[in-house]
Design a protein around this nucleic acid. Sequence first.
RNA 1: GGUUUCGUAGUGUAGUGGUUAGCACUCCAGACUUUGAAUCUGGCGACCUGGGUUCGAAUCCCUGCGAGACCUCCA
Length: 471
Amino acid sequence: MDIFISVMPRFDDTNPEAEKKEYIDHIQEIVHWLGWEPYKVTYTSDYFQALYEHAVELLRKGLAYVDHQTAEQIRKDRETNTDSPWRDRPIEESLQLCEDMRRGLIAEGAATLRMKQDMQNDTRNMYDLIAYRIKFTPHPHAGDKWCIYPSYDYAHCMVDSLENITHSLCTLEFDVRRPSYYWVLVALGLYQPYVWEYSRLNISHNIMSKRKLNRLVTEKWVDGWDDPRLLTLAGLRRRGVSAAAINSFIRGMGITRSVNSLIPVDRLEYHIREELNKTASRAMVVLHPLKVPFSRTVYIEKTDFRLEDSKDYYGLAPGKSALLSYAFPIKCTEVIHGDNPDEIVEIRAEYDPSKTSKPKGVLHWVAEPAPGVEPLKVEIRLFEKLFLSENPAGLEDKEPEGTAWLRDLNPHSKEVVKGAYAVPSLATAVVGDKFQFERLGYFAVDTDSTPEELVFNRTVTLRDSYGKGPR
RNA sequence: GGUUUCGUAGUGUAGUGGUUAGCACUCCAGACUUUGAAUCUGGCGACCUGGGUUCGAAUCCCUGCGAGACCUCCA
């Protein structure tokens, strides 16, 4: 038996000051990129008229009133369970004032519409919550038709009901809002959906909170919402993570109310590797080239050579052989130092015919395309974990500004390698192309690439078992 | 302080009165290997604590301990 579910995401655009068209457009585009097509996308602002009519009905039932207290006065009264002095004003008076609010005849801050819930309730979330506030701000979606706007607590439940959904899904912090959610629906005799809360996805060594992300971006700690170090969908996409990997990652997790879950980033990396292993073309790139003049000059990785050999080391050393991948074995015969004896500018090597089977060290390499012609030069961007500790959001905060997590940022989370060499086949790579650079990891073409120079982001490293020694 | 939510292998979870407590990642071992990658085979590892109900409890009830959330004219 198959179960079919339709999902209707809604933009809760009740605050015109906080809504931005570019965010809305981006969210819709990135959800589409992820491969999900909602059954319908709606806006709370589509229901502004109905919401207002229901507010009038609440007033007629004597279940709402226009209040003139300041936010501070309201807060104080809530602390002492005290009714507003305007709570029991005549219905006709509140009706008239509500209409005046709607027509823009009352100044911002001079009145609110509050629901007559229960100032003596067990939970503060029932203390005559505000249903409407005055804001002389046009709405990005609804235009300038309104100067009063509904609150989350008034609008959310009602639009759920008006849309006739079965289940309303939201994150855990809304759990304590349930009493108010159902109070509104019961008061108006409207259909009541189920409400299910679930905990937010947290991934180690990073942050997922919108508030913190916003801060990282606006304060320029990162390079924007699509910085490849971020776990935003835009960031992951730019980094080279595919939608399939993300969906696979999400699919493997439970949806619970567990409050402290923290998924190790390893797990995301596992899914990214799994996907790219299947889909990425293989190519060879040398990040830090070491010159090996030969019949044709080749470049190997600096780290694939060292002066001292040892049993568990498979690369080149003086007098030692290794295999050039897809080519032939070579033996290092001479080391050429620079002015500084610690600096090695090139090594001399020769074909080694004795190395015929079971090579231990297989090295990637890039050759000059023609004698004396430099190989294709590319820029490589390497990323490490954005934060040093596992759960930066959970760091003890003793500062008023709450900056402990910012101080946990990894100063080495991004490294730019300028002088890498790539095989000629990569010259035609375009944004969207992904590769495994053999022995190095998975890489994707970045949007910063130009006709003169390609830029590759490292999406994820290969698994590294070097420290475990030879098998 | 009030209200409220959560607690199953290292990590994330499945389980809703009767299982050898399942899955995945991590970890360990072996095999294979022209990527110390990939692949294949095997393994280690858990029901926060105490009490109660019951023939029988991870599952129901209570106490304790621990960890969160909410308390904005933000959502």
